[in-house]
């Protein structure tokens, strides 16, 4: 072989439990980060459409700032920067960093989804005596959710992929497990290719799930 590298796939079977444990770590990290992203993102998205100028300015600043910096820099800042003042567990820093970062994108998706619902819907709901919150809950959000779902799934697929960056701050995930296997075996080609396949299975499953949900919630217009 060129450069004298001979493939040896036994590394995969031998280290399969280590790599699959990496999948578990990445999934756990991603799910927790997605929860943080939804909570932060929905809140920030609602703040962005607030009529209070201070609230909407703060939400806009959060969205614009985080969308304008690299995730790696943000993770470094959280773990090493903020970590110089407070004792931060690397897992907490990873979940928080990924979640708050993705939250900025979720906020924009939520805002755009709500604003895409025609004004007449809110007016009809308010005219029937619903409060603003009731109108949001029963009329606006159920419709917005259907429009939000596809871009949201895309965002969470990006989050699963981006979660590999936490290995740089020594966060435990699939990428870190793969690196550890390579350090022990020097089988870069096989391990990275297999790792890529594992990431693809995770993101493809999520993408299929989102298509299924989309079909389930579809409404005619």
């Amino acid at each position: 072989m060129i450069a004298g590298y001979t493939m040896d796939w036994r590394v995969i079977t031998e280290y399969l439990p280590v790599l699959l444990y990496g999948v578990v770590l990445t999934l756990r990290l991603s799910v927790m980060a997605i929860i943080v992203a939804i909570v932060v993102g929905v809140f920030a998205g609602l703040c962005r459409i607030s009529r209070n100028p201070i609230i909407s300015f703060l939400a806009t600043a959060y969205v614009e700032f985080l969308r304008g910096i690299p995730l790696l820099v943000f993770l470094m800042f959280i773990y090493f920067g903020v970590g110089s003042f407070v004792n931060l567990d690397v897992q907490v820093a990873s979940v928080f960093g990924l979640g708050v970062f993705a939250g900025a994108f979720v906020a924009e998706i939520v805002r755009a989804g709500i604003e895409s619902i025609p004004k007449g819907q809110m007016e009809a709901a308010r005219s029937s005596g619903m409060s603003y919150l009731q109108a949001m809950r029963f009329i606006i959000l159920p419709q917005a959710l259907r429009r939000i779902l596809p871009p949201l799934a895309g965002q969470f697929i990006a989050l699963i992929k981006d979660s590999s960056l936490v290995s740089v701050i020594s966060g435990k995930d699939l990428t870190l497990q793969a690196r550890n296997v390579i350090i022990a075996t020097f089988r870069s080609f096989e391990v990275w290719l297999f790792t890529a396949a594992l990431y693809f299975i995770m993101t493809f499953a999520l993408s299929q799930l989102s298509h299924a949900l989309e079909r389930k919630f579809k409404i005619e217009h």
């Binding site: 025609p118 007449g120 819907q121 007016e123 009809a124 709901a125 308010r126 005219s127 029937s128 005596g129 009329i139 159920p142 419709q143 259907r146 409404i219 005619e220 217009h221």
Partner: peptide
Amino acid sequence: LRQEIGFVFQHFNLYPH
């Protein structure tokens, strides 16, 4: 007050979902 005042819109504004 709005519970006592029904409103019918030009473009219906029914809830599509």
